[in-house]
Nucleic acid binder design. Structure first.
Lengths: 204, 204
DNA sequence: ATAATAGTTGACCGATCAGTCAAGGCGAAT
DNA sequence: ATTCGCCTTGACTGATCGGTCAACTATTAT
């Protein structure tokens, strides 16, 4: 067997990075190659098109984040607390990234998905698939919360989709307005959407 | 005085149309000109860049829709009913458009805004401004609903922003999944976000 | 050591990109 | 009817786009 290369990962990393910070359309294959330290020929050795690279980059991002998601939404954590931890995690990650690039970047799945959905079915289907996987974490937490009588959610799947959409709307707004504080306010909105019985703030 | 031309409007109409259906990045100046029946030189007679045209197109779209919004959110309509009518209106408009282009297009403000926000401050600021204007309709309806004891919303502006973000998240999801039914389900979510009292009593 | 193969390179392609410009056409006020 | 100036035209630019290709390198199993 000949040599092995990490170039494929470098390319997907560079692609997602650039597309997240800018957009799919303004991220050229040349720019991806430059950041990955690759030449154009190498790019097209691994991927047959920019579209295919994008789908691979989104899947790679999912794989890198899956363990984190599993931990955040661990069944050992009280169901409603899972959301709190997840929202905190995303907030912190976006705030951290803002320090280096100056912008709140929102969710790459939504940004890229919204941009290409009417034109690139390959990427669209990939976005859809990852979207569904992430919703499963919400769904499971909602079902557990319902079982414990914390909320009333006879249709956990629908409730999960709704909450996920609301959250992503807030992420998109945070990106457009470049304001991370919008994410802080979402926790209360999430409780409203989930139908958590209103609780007065308890000093901790 | 020499002749007058409707070319400027034709160009903004064509631009918004193409960017809504596809994206900002994939909408070329050439394509805009072709749809508007203009030559490149005319385009740059009216606008000094694609970016400036986009900002103008968004403002023009707002101006065309303002009367509709005023009617939908008329103070003569019961406050919570205003939302119902607005959501129906958007749903019907998107469903109608789907017949001709095959896709649920979501909200152009969000799509374009999300796409260019980190790269084009001119368009970003325009998106921001229109976003704020639209939120005012929500805010006013929420304040009226609060005054009538239909909901509890001590901070109507924050509630309006939250609901607007949630709705746009749903619009984005509908675009990505090309599914108009997601918008139908939003009405109940909106009631949850607004904190409308229904069968489920809310503890004080 | 060498052969087989995974990976790399850089030159190249036609198309399209946003944007420019000088010149001319054409409507309205005089 | 002339003139003023809004608007249109079409040919043009240099850069960049996504993508191709044949030749080359480097690694590793044998």
């Amino acid at each position: 067997m000949p040599r092995v290369s990490d170039m494929k990962n470098r390319l997907t990393d560079a692609a997602l990075d650039l597309m997240w910070e800018n957009s799919y359309g303004t991220t050229s294959v040349d720019a991806i190659c430059e950041r990955a330290g690759a030449k154009k020929g190498s790019f097209y050795y691994f991927f047959k098109s920019k579209s295919e690279l994008t789908a691979a980059a989104l899947e790679a991002e999912w794989n890198k984040n899956k363990a984190n998601m599993d931990a955040l939404f661990s069944p050992t954590v009280p169901p409603l607390e899972r959301f709190d931890r997840y929202f905190d995690y995303v907030h912190d990650r976006l705030a951290e990234r803002q320090k280096t690039c100056g912008s709140i970047l929102g969710c790459p799945i939504l940004s890229i998905g919204s941009e290409v959905s009417t034109q690139d079915q390959g990427v669209r289907v990939t976005v859809d698939r990852i979207w569904d996987r992430k919703i499963k974490y919400f769904e499971s937490a909602i079902r557990d919360a319902h079982a414990q009588g914390l909320i009333v959610a006879p249709d956990p799947e629908a409730k999960a989709r709704a909450l996920f959409a609301c959250y992503h709307g807030t992420l998109a707004q945070a990106r457009i307005q470049n304001d991370v504080e919008l994410l802080r306010d979402f926790k209360q909105v999430a409780m409203d959407v989930l139908g958590v019985k209103h609780t007065q703030a308890v000093s901790s």
